[in-house]
Nucleic acid binder design. Structure first.
Length: 395
DNA sequence: TTCCATGATTAGCC
DNA sequence: GGCTAATCATGGAA
């Protein structure tokens, strides 16, 4: 059955859904005349575009005043509902987009979007704190926070703009459709559907905004917080402390866990940074002993002075306070390798210094271990070379 | 801009 | 898990 004949059929009394239409058409044998009437109306509608503007206007007015107009309008609405729009109707209930959820979660985790609007400063602070930047990166830290806050602000401003635009556009379209529904077959359902379409469009724009915000945050993170990028040379004092320990333990430069912790605390760096430093130092020293000779001598001489002072103090103590008591908490200098047990009790590392200068078990690698390549005798350290008491059993 | 020093990362070893 | 060795990436001096 073609659409027009179907329409004709429905127009004579029953809609597609079987509901009676308030047609002023009496079923009293005047059907033929009514059918003719409806046929005329439809013909006028279909040919209205072929006519001149004035003619069309006049015809439109005539149709608007036609007694069958209300019925025809209602039927056309229903036909629209049942045909083209029903296809779109299936898309009404979209499941939540997983990508959108991912973006939302990320923005929430980064502190860009949060319960509070307008920047979410607290969330930003929490996010930056969660990152765990070291104390020495305070400048970048605050800079990072400022930038993140800026991104957050832009995001919220844009989001607000989109929401406002969406609302304005929706209202405008709704008004337009309501206005047009007086002359075109537009049902409230169709208006509702149109609103949904608009919202979908705007939410896709919103997703793009969220995506670009996420990208901006990622770039910011990599720029400010990427470990390689944030590399900063340790302070001169920190390097000095580490070098002092290294050269005073040259025969076994493997600080214990406690020693590492103490060094980390003194240098205001992390434990892993201490480990990294010693790892790098050992390998670089071993690779080029000649280059580090001067540095080794320098620190050895430095330590020797401290040691001499310590010996003098110890001797003085032993003479004045017999029996001898260790000079507890003296000067914070490091003990000397092989310089006798008397220095070991004076370690500045809370006694973390290992009394015997033997390589830590399991630390010396079979292939090119420390003592295979760098024996204390190969280093002309004034301390280690001069030490008559050498507890390093590897020699 | 180049080059060297240096902190961080990674793979492989024990 | 800690270490070595190689490598990457950046900072800073020349």
């Amino acid at each position: 059955m073609d659409e027009q004949s179907h329409l004709m059929q429905t127009l004579v009394g029953v809609t597609l859904t079987g509901h009676p239409v308030p047609l002023p058409v009496p079923h009293d044998g005047t059907d033929a005349r009514n059918k003719q009437d409806i046929g005329d109306i439809l013909h006028q509608i279909m040919t209205i575009t072929d006519q001149s503007l004035d003619e069309a206007q006049a015809k439109k007015h005539g149709l608007n005043c036609h007694r069958m107009k209300a019925a025809l309008f209602s039927v056309l609405c229903e036909i629209k509902e049942k045909t083209g729009l029903s296809i779109r109707g299936s898309q009404d209930e979209d499941p939540p987009d997983p990508q959108l959820m991912r973006l939302d979660n990320m923005l929430l985790a980064e502190g860009v979007s949060g319960p509070e609007k307008g920047g979410g400063a607290a969330a930003v602070a929490a996010a930056t704190a969660a990152v765990g930047v070291g104390a020495d990166n305070s400048i970048e830290h605050s800079d990072y926070r400022a930038k993140l806050s800026q991104i957050s602000q832009i995001y919220h401003t844009e989001l607000e703009k989109y929401e406002q635009a969406c609302n304005e556009f929706t209202t405008h379209v709704m008004n337009l459709l309501r206005e047009q529904s007086r002359t075109r077959p537009i049902s409230p359902k169709e208006i509702e559907r149109m609103v949904n379409i608009i919202h979908r469009k705007f939410s896709s724009i919103q997703m793009q905004l969220k995506q670009s915000t996420c990208e901006a945050v990622m770039i910011l993170r990599s720029r400010f917080l990427d470990a390689r990028r944030k590399r900063r040379n340790f302070s001169k004092q920190a390097t000095e402390i580490l070098n002092e320990y290294f050269y005073s333990h040259l025969s076994n430069p493997y600080p214990s866990e406690e020693a590492k912790e103490e060094l980390a605390k003194k240098c205001a760096i992390t434990l892993s940074q201490v480990s990294n430093w010693f790892g790098n130092k050992r390998i670089r020293y071993k690779k080029n002993i000649g280059k580090f000779q001067e540095e080794a001598n320098l620190y050895a001489a430095k330590t020797a002075v401290t040691a001499t002072q310590a010996v003098a103090a110890a001797v003085h103590n032993s003479q004045t306070n017999s029996p001898a008591t260790p000079s507890s908490g003296s000067s914070g200098s490091y003990s000397l390798p092989g310089s006798g047990d008397i220095f070991m009790s004076m370690s500045g590392l809370n006694g973390s210094y290992q009394p015997t200068q033997v390589p830590n078990t399991g630390q010396t690698q079979g292939n090119g271990g420390w003592h295979d390549a760098v024996t204390p005798s190969s280093v002309t350290s004034p301390i280690e070379g001069a030490n008559s008491i050498h507890s390093d059993t590897s020699n």
